[in-house]
Each structure stands twice: as C-alpha cells, then as structure tokens.
C-alpha cells in the first residue's frame, strides 16, 4: 500500500515538474529566437482574426455583439502574447530582436484597443477603416516572422 502511495506521489510530482518545465523561459539564443518566431506568428494571427471580424461585421455577416467579443478576444490575446515575450530576458546578442517584437506587439495592442473602443462606442462606420489599418501591421509581423525564421533580424 505504502509503495503504491509513493508511486502515485512520485507520478504526480513528475507531472507537476513536467508542466513547470513547459512554462520555463527560453535559455539559449536558439530557443529565444524560436519563441520570438512563435510570438510573432501568434500576433499576426490575432491581427488577422480581428480583421476577419471587422470585415464580417461591416458586411453584415455577423452580429455586432459577436464581433465585439471577437475583437476583445484578439486584443486580450495580443496583449498577453506580447507581455509574455517581453517578460523573458533576451540573450545579449538578441536585445534588438526583443525590442522589435515588443514594439510590434505594442503597436498591435494599441490598434486593437482603438478598434475595441470604437466598437464599444457604436462607431461601426469607422471599423472598415480600422480593418485597413490592421492589414499593414499583419504584413509587418509576417515580414518580421520570416526574418526571424531565416536567422537574420
């Protein structure tokens, strides 16, 4: 019985340690670059999904309530993704990469916040214009992602 209990406790500890390891910050330049690429991809996805909601709402394909929720979700995700990356210390040679990614994250979060505020104020006429502003941001993130993947900065 004691052996079984010990085995169960050991298994639970192993799972807890494994989950903790999964949350660990990047500890090498290679890993940092990989996380940067994932962060940029996620932020580009968030910009694009917000654009989908905006265009669908402008075309009357979805309700304003649902579009508002979609935009809020995208803004929340963009803020969280950017903040998580900003919280990791970069290796000395990649400080510039950190600045570039977090700057893009800040710009995206600001743009999405503007969209969310306009939606909350019921200024739906402004939203297709706002969707147009998100497109260059998505392109910038796509280009940054390509450069990070190819090893340049």
């Amino acid at each position: 019985m004691t052996r079984r209990v010990l085995a169960l406790v050991a298994a639970a500890l192993l799972v807890a340690l494994a989950l903790w390891y999964g949350q660990a910050p990047p500890r090498s330049s290679e890993m940092y670059r990989k996380r940067a690429e994932e962060t940029v991809q996620a932020m580009r996805s968030q910009a694009q999904v917000a654009t989908f909601w905006l265009r669908a709402a402008s075309a009357g394909r979805v309700t304003r309530e649902a579009a508002t929720v979609g935009i809020e979700d995208a803004e929340g995700d963009a803020g969280a993704t950017s903040a998580e990356f900003a919280g990791w210390d970069p290796p000395a040679d990649l400080v510039g990469l950190r600045d570039e990614v977090t700057d893009a994250g800040d710009d995206l979060t600001d743009a999405l916040a503007d969209v969310r505020i306009a939606a909350h104020h019921g200024q739906w006429g402004r939203l297709s214009e706002a969707a147009g502003q998100l497109d260059p941001l998505a392109d910038r993130l796509a280009s940054l992602g390509t450069r990070v993947r190819e090893g340049g900065r």
Partner: peptide
C-alpha cells in the same frame, strides 16, 4: 491565413 484558433468565438 495562418490563423491559430484560441477562442470559441473563432
């Protein structure tokens, strides 16, 4: 579009 689904809204 390379969009990653993260919410029920999506």
């Amino acid at each position: 579009a390379g969009i990653q689904v993260e919410h029920l809204s999506e």
